[in-house]
Design a binder for these strands. Sequence first.
DNA 1: TAGCGTAAGGTTACGGGTAACGCAATTGCC
DNA 2: GGCAATTGCGTTACCCGTAACCTTACGCTA
Lengths: 344, 344
Amino acid sequence: MSEKKNKNKKISLSEVATAAGVSKMTASRVLRGEGGYSESTRALVMQKVDELGYLPNRLATVFAGDKSSTFVGVSIPDLGNEVFAQVLEGIDRKLGLFGHQTVLGLTQHTQKAEEEWIKTVLSWQPAGLILTGRYHSARATEMLKAANVPIVEIWDLNSSPMDTSVGINHFDCGFDMGRYLVGCGYRELGYVGTSHDTANAAATRLDGFTRAVEGGNGHVSKQLCLHDTANYYTGYYGTEQLLAGTKSVECIFYQNDAMAFGGLQFVLSKGMSVPGDIGIAGWGDLPIASVLPKRMTSMHVPHLKLGQTAAEMMLARLSDEPVPVCKDIGFHLIPGTTVRRADN
Amino acid sequence: MSEKKNKNKKISLSEVATAAGVSKMTASRVLRGEGGYSESTRALVMQKVDELGYLPNRLATVFAGDKSSTFVGVSIPDLGNEVFAQVLEGIDRKLGLFGHQTVLGLTQHTQKAEEEWIKTVLSWQPAGLILTGRYHSARATEMLKAANVPIVEIWDLNSSPMDTSVGINHFDCGFDMGRYLVGCGYRELGYVGTSHDTANAAATRLDGFTRAVEGGNGHVSKQLCLHDTANYYTGYYGTEQLLAGTKSVECIFYQNDAMAFGGLQFVLSKGMSVPGDIGIAGWGDLPIASVLPKRMTSMHVPHLKLGQTAAEMMLARLSDEPVPVCKDIGFHLIPGTTVRRADN
DNA sequence: TAGCGTAAGGTTACGGGTAACGCAATTGCC
DNA sequence: GGCAATTGCGTTACCCGTAACCTTACGCTA
C-alpha cells in the first residue's frame, strides 16, 4: 500500500537485452526460440530473464504482429444452472490445453447484456468467440460480422450459423419427450418453465413438446414463472400454481431437472404419489439424479462433451482446418421412474 | 471461408479521422468525450464511426497509457463442484457491472496448473487476480509478487495473505461440525473425502473436525478416495469402502454435500436407516438440499456472496480505496435430519 | 489596437514487442 | 585463395492509441 511507486514498472524486453548486452531483437528471437543466435547468447539472455524475473507482455506481441490474441470469449447465460457450468468447464479445459484463455461473459439470458459484452470483448482482439444460443441482437450480429473472428454458436443446433455451430435440436428434444409421455398414456400434460421469451432453447423445446402432445390428441397447460432463474424454488412454486389452476393434469414436463426436482418435492409434500397420482419429467439429467432413490425421467445431454466439442471446433477454425458448419451432439431419453411405464 | 483476405483489416482510429477530415487525436478526444472539439466535429466523427463500424482496440489503449487492462484473472479449482460455480458467478456479475472482464483459469486443484495459468494470465497485464486457495507454488508466489497487481485470495481465510483475502475459517468449520456431532452423542465417526494433499481447505476442515472429535473422546476413521473429484460417485463408493473397513462407524462426515448425497444413497440402498442406523453430514449446503424430503445435516456458506465480496474487494483495491487485509464471511451449521438429534 | 485568454485542433513522441531488411564475420567449397 | 552461402546479430519502421505539447484563430478588454 504505502510502498514507493517506483517498483511498479515491469521489466521490459529491452531491459533484458541491455543487461545481456545484446539488442532487443536478439532477445526477442531467443525468447521465441526461432533461431538466429548462438548458444552462448541464448544462455546469457535466458540467465538475465531469470535474474530479472522478466515476464513477456503479450499485449505488445498481439499489437505488434497485428495478429489475434489467444483469448477466446465465451458467453454463458448463468452458472447457477449446473448444465452451463459443465459446458464452460468442458470449453475451458480443452482451450487451456492449447494455450488459450477463456474470457467469461454471463449474459443473464438477455440479448442486451450479451451485446454489451460482445462489444467489450471484441475490443480486446480475441482469437474467437463461443456464444451460447443462436439469437443475438441486430447490433451484436453486425459487430460480430465486422470483427471477422471465428465464432462457434453452441446449445441450439443452428443449421445456418454465423460461422459454425454445435448443439442439439431442442425442438426434437421436446418432441421426443412429448411423444414418450403420450406413449405412456398421458393426455393432460402440464409444462412449468420460466421463459416468456420465445427466442431461446427452452421455448423451442416447449414448441416441440406441444406439437407432439397435440399430435397425440393430448393437451398442454402451461405455467411460466416470472422469475428468470429456473431453479428448485421456481419449480416448486410453479407447480403449486399450475395445479391450482388446472386439476386435471396427469403429468408435468419441466424446463429443466432443477425445476422438476422442485416440482417433485411439491407434489410429494401434498401427499401425492409419483408416478401413481402424477408424473414428473425433467430435462438435462443432473448428475445428482443418478444417486437419488427415484430416477428422474429426463433427457440426457452430454454437456461436458458439448463444451469440449465447441472448443475443438474453435481450435480447428483457428488453425484453418476444415470445420463442419453445424454439429449435432445428440441427446437421449432417460425413462426414469417418475412417470408411469409405457404400455407398449 | 473462401473470402478474400483483404477485408481482414479492422478499421483503425486514423481511418475514422481521415474519413472525417480531422486528425487522429481529435477523433480520439471525441471518442473519449474529454472535450476540446466543437459540436459539429463531434457529430461528424461519430457519424463516421457508425458508418465504418469502428471498434476501438483496447490493446492499444492499455499499451499507450501504460496502464493496466480491465481484465481480472480468476482461478477456480473446478466447475463440477456447484459451489465454485456460484462463487464464479458472484465474481463475474459484480465485476461485469464495473466494466471488468473475467479471465478464467481452472486449476484442477493442482498448484502446477495454477502456476502455469498465473504465468500466462500475468503476461496479459491483468488489472488484478482473484485466486482460490491460499497455497501457491514458490514460483507462482514469486511471479505474483513481481507482477505487483492487486490479489484477492478467496476460500480459505488467510490472516496474512499476499495482498487481501476473503473466505471462511475451514478449521473452525470442521471443528464446529465435529463438536456438534459429538454433542449428538456420536463417538465413532467416519470421514470420506478425496484429498490426499494437506494443503487445501478440505484437509483443514478435517483437521478441525478430528480435533473436536478427539477432544470429545471420540475417534475418526478416514477413507480418502483416489479420485480427484469430490462428487456423488466418490461419495457412494468411498462410503462402501469405509464401512467395509470399520463396522463400528456411527456417523460419517463428508468433504462436501455431493459426496454426502452419494453416501446417503449407498447406506439407504443397503437397507440402513438414516439417522436411525447411521448419521450423515455434508458440507456446503447444496441448493437442492432445500427441496429434498430429508434435510442434509451440513454447513452453509454464502457462496454467491463470497464471490461478490471478492469482486468488491478487488474493485476497491483497483480504485485505491482502503481494503481490509482479511474478511471473514462466516458460515452456519444446518442441523438437518440426517443425524440424530442432539440430546442437550 | 496591442495584449491576452481560450477554444479547437494539430504534431510529436512514445509504449513493448516483431517483421523485414542490412551487414559483418565465419564457414564451405572447388 | 576467391567467392558464395550461412550464421549471428543490429537497425529501422511499424502496430494503434494517448499524453504532452504546440499552433492557430478568434474574442474580449484596457
